[in-house]
């Protein structure tokens, strides 16, 4: 079992502890968890888009997912770990970064060709808003704390019902836009953090990041809109 020891204790764990102890290491973990979460979000959106394909397809997909509770548990724990790591490190580095300048400037102006409110400068804020959105989302769909539905409700019906709650719909809509906002910077930032900055590819990565962010934001934002339109009887 030498290889396990090497991987586990002697190497990987040590490396992780060391990485979390340095500013760049924390950034790596931040970026990696972010990238994995983006992967999750993409899969999540793909699944959700089945709402538009048909009631049956969506229900089947949802049932198939939940038919393997062990897998779901592992996935949930994994996701939770990713989120927690991402969030805790974010809180940590934000605090540290604030501490690096105890007394601020009286006047501040960027030298970059851009306006003040840019995605990169507000990652913590957009992240916090996203967190609120996710918590509400979990309260709605995972823990049924708000608007609990009847027993045996089919997934499609549940989704439609929850999305038609005006508060949820509003938060989901805004939250989705902030997800895009977060990813405009987040996606390309991962590549910089992992050291993949190349004059040939970086412009492409930046464009891809924006495109991905737009697709994800519009994709997710479309669900509450769709639900509300349905609620008020607009024919789609």
């Amino acid at each position: 079992m030498g290889w396990l020891r090497l991987l586990g204790k002697e190497y990987l764990l040590n490396w992780l502890i060391k990485a979390l102890g340095s500013s760049i290491g924390r950034k790596f973990v931040m970026g990696l968890t972010g990238l994995l979460l983006i992967g999750f979000v993409i899969v999540h959106l793909a699944g959700n888009l089945l709402l538009y394909v048909g009631i049956e397809d969506y229900n089947n997909y949802a049932h198939a997912l939940h038919s393997k509770p062990g897998l779901v548990l592992v996935a949930e724990i994994g996701l939770l770990a990713l989120f927690l790591a991402h969030i805790l490190i974010a809180v940590g580095i934000t605090r540290e970064n604030r501490a690096a300048r105890p007394e601020g400037y009286q006047m501040r102006r960027s030298k970059q060709n851009r306006t003040a409110a840019t995605p990169s400068a507000l990652m913590f804020v957009s992240g916090a808003i996203l967190l609120g959105f996710i918590l509400l989302h979990l309260a709605d769909f995972r823990f049924h704390l708000r608007n609990p539905g009847p027993d045996g409700e089919e997934p499609f019906a549940k989704a439609l019902r929850l999305l038609q709650d005006p508060v949820s719909a509003g938060v989901y809509f805004v939250g989705s836009l902030f997800l895009g906002w977060h990813l405009v910077h987040g996606f390309q930032s991962v590549f910089q953090t992992l050291g993949w900055n190349h004059p040939k590819y970086t412009p492409l990565i930046k464009k891809a990041g924006v495109a991905l962010a737009v697709v994800l934001a519009l994709g997710f934002a479309s669900f509450p809109v769709w639900a509300m339109l349905k609620k008020y009887g607009v024919q789609l």
Binding site: S22, S23, I24, K27, N97, Q112, S120, A121, M123, T193
Partner: peptide, 17 residues
């Protein structure tokens, strides 16, 4: 990098300012 951290500089958040 270790010395940079020890001096109390903040981390990079890729804002490119």
């Amino acid at each position: 990098v270790a010395q940079m951290d020890a001096e109390g500089f903040g981390g990079c958040t890729n804002t490119y300012e």
